[in-house]
Design a protein around this nucleic acid. Structure first.
Length: 314
RNA sequence: GGCGACAUAGCCAAGCGGUAAGGCACGGGUCUGCAACACCCUGAGCACCAGUUCAAAUCUGGUUGUCGCCU
């Protein structure tokens, strides 16, 4: 069976993925699956810069506003849904386009990484979390060194979260996560794909981020967060730890002044964009599209379409 | 013009005679079930000049600059 086409359009936050994705979808007769860990949640619109219905311009979108903010969402779940939607789109003889900035999610789908279905027992994890508090992460790291020395070597002793996951994995499967990761690293993509990373001059990107945060505040981000709090969503939920929700939440809790919250939000968003770029740099077979080299969005689209033709996707 | 205070990395800032803490920003990186997460790496010889001393960012004198107060 020949590989089915898949187009990926990503880039750091605020580069302009959304507007380009619509014209791309129209040009190739595609439908869009969002690869964004925060836009999957309902009621979180302003802070996630979620596309509005009218902006979709008739292009079907998936994985946007599909879950409540108190639902657990993660890569595994994302992968399952994305695969399902890819099939649905294929059946319509259309091209699925993965659009969004969560590199980890894109990777999970693109290389069809195998995540074992095993989130049954939470008790062990809770035990580990308690241990981390009482005996410190160094202790956990030593524990890991006994079970899975390779992972212990790769994970910094301060990185409690990753240490716990490695221990949990070992506990649940009896295998070293390091071995599993190594194996999955060699996965070949089941798709005939093109992976585009939209980028632009760093200083301009940062300026756009600052302007966008100000616009979010003007458009009612504070009220949006207030509303979510009133609905009973709390800061321990993953959704409420998203950029914007975390910082404005701190303001609403009286931990920061509004000006401080805005300042921190801008800074955190810039950091996020930087981390995203670091991620994309490691990905193989990526086509970098530098906005500064093009006159306008139309020229960018042409450039992308040429790549797709060359790859035999369209 | 006079008096006083202060000059340490892009910013904030410790050090007060023994060979430059820390924080933030910037930059780089790790990542395979919380990923808009979590974590890691990375910089200066102390405004300038001259002295004292085995040794000065630290003491002395001068120069320049900034801030405050006064006429």
């Amino acid at each position: 069976m020949s590989k089915k086409p898949l187009i990926i359009l990503t880039g750091p936050t605020s580069v302009g993925k959304t507007s380009l994705s619509i014209s791309l979808a129209k040009a190739v007769n595609g439908e869009i699956i969002s690869a964004d860990s925060m836009q999957v949640y309902k009621y979180m619109n302003i802070g996630t810069a979620k596309i509005k219905d009218e902006e979709m311009d008739g292009i079907p979108h998936y994985l946007i506003s599909e879950f409540d903010p108190d639902e657990d969402f993660n890569v595994f779940k994302f992968q399952q849904y994305a695969k399902k939607y890819i099939e649905i789109i294929q059946e319509k003889n259309k091209i699925p386009i993965l659009v969004g900035g969560t590199g980890f999610y894109i990777q999970a789908v693109l290389y069809d990484i195998d995540f074992q279905d095993n989130d049954s027992d939470k008790s062990y994890r809770q035990e580990l979390e308690a241990l981390a508090k009482t005996r410190g992460s160094t202790y956990l790291h030593e524990l890991l060194a006994h079970r899975d020395p390779l992972s212990a070597k790769a994970i910094h002793p301060n990185n409690t979260k990753k240490i716990i996951r490695a221990l949990e994995y070992y506990h649940q499967t009896g295998e070293a996560i390091s071995a599993h990761n190594k194996e999955q690293k060699n996965n070949e993509s089941p798709y005939l794909y093109k992976y585009f990373v939209l980028n632009r001059d760093r200083a301009k990107l940062y300026e756009t981020i600052n302007v966008r945060v100000d616009a979010m505040i003007k458009n009612g981000l504070v009220d949006e967060v207030k509303k979510l709090k009133n609905m009973g969503y709390t800061k321990d939920m993953v959704s409420m730890q998203g950029l914007g929700y975390k910082e404005i939440g701190a303001y609403l809790d009286g931990e920061l002044s509004l000006d401080e919250a805005i300042h921190v939000l801008k800074r955190d968003t810039r950091h996020y964009a930087k981390r995203q770029l670091t991620w994309f740099r490691r990905e193989k077979d990526v086509v970098w599209v530098d906005k500064d080299n093009f006159e306008n969005d139309h020229a960018i689209l042409d450039h992308i379409l040429n790549h797709l033709k060359e790859a035999g996707i369209i």
